[in-house]
């Protein structure tokens, strides 16, 4: 994936990414307000494939699915120096690629064009010639990511349950 960088600072919290007042609304409505709490022009600027680059503790705060408005607004991945635990879980479970890479988070600039290999965790910035390697998740988590999130695993379990019941 190739996209332009939108830079944010440390501790971007879920109220900035997905303000609580839209929690009861449809996903379409929620995506129109992505990042509204920190940049009210974000959804006007963001193009499909674009990348969010942020500092430490991205997605801190609430357990809400703050990755959804980013996904729906066209963000292809988030690169950060670190992620809050719940944002990481949410993104992994529902298929928004996230890369933990303090170096890239520090060096990439607003508007940089970057090429990102999600599975390999490789971030290329052709303008500077820099290549970054993101930290890899444990194999267990990479398996969830490769499966496209957590739902396929649960579906298999439910199928087994249905099958066992029918055999009885």
């Amino acid at each position: 994936m190739t996209g332009r960088v939108h830079r944010f600072g440390d501790n971007v919290d879920t109220d900035m990414i997905m303000p609580a007042r839209y929690l009861g609304h449809s996903r379409a409505e929620q995506s129109r307000h992505a990042m509204e709490g920190v940049d009210s022009d974000f959804t006007a600027k963001v193009q499909p494939g674009d990348v969010i680059v942020a500092g430490r503790n991205f997605g801190c705060g609430s357990a809400r699915p703050a990755h959804r408005p980013l996904q729906d607004a066209g963000v292809s991945c988030v690169i950060a120096a670190s992620f809050a635990n719940l944002f990481m879980r949410n993104a992994v479970n529902e298929g928004l690629p996230i890369l933990r890479c303090p170096e890239a988070a520090r060096e990439l600039r607003e508007g940089d064009l970057v090429e990102v290999d999600h599975e390999g965790g490789i971030i290329r910035c052709p303008a500077t010639g820099r290549v970054y390697q993101a930290e890899m998740f444990p194999e267990f988590i990479r398996q969830i990511i490769r499966s496209g999130g957590l739902i396929p695993y649960a579906r298999e379990k439910v199928k087994q349950r249905v099958q066992e019941r029918e055999e009885k």
């Binding site: 809400r64 699915p65 949410n90 444990p138 999130g149 957590l150 649960a154 439910v158």
Partner: peptide, 20 residues
């Protein structure tokens, strides 16, 4: 432990939660 929406759905459906 707090989890997100998908983990909650999976917990409700199959009674499991993944954790590191």
């Amino acid at each position: 432990v707090g989890v997100g929406a998908a983990s909650l759905a999976v917990a409700l459906a199959i009674g499991e939660v993944w954790l590191e």
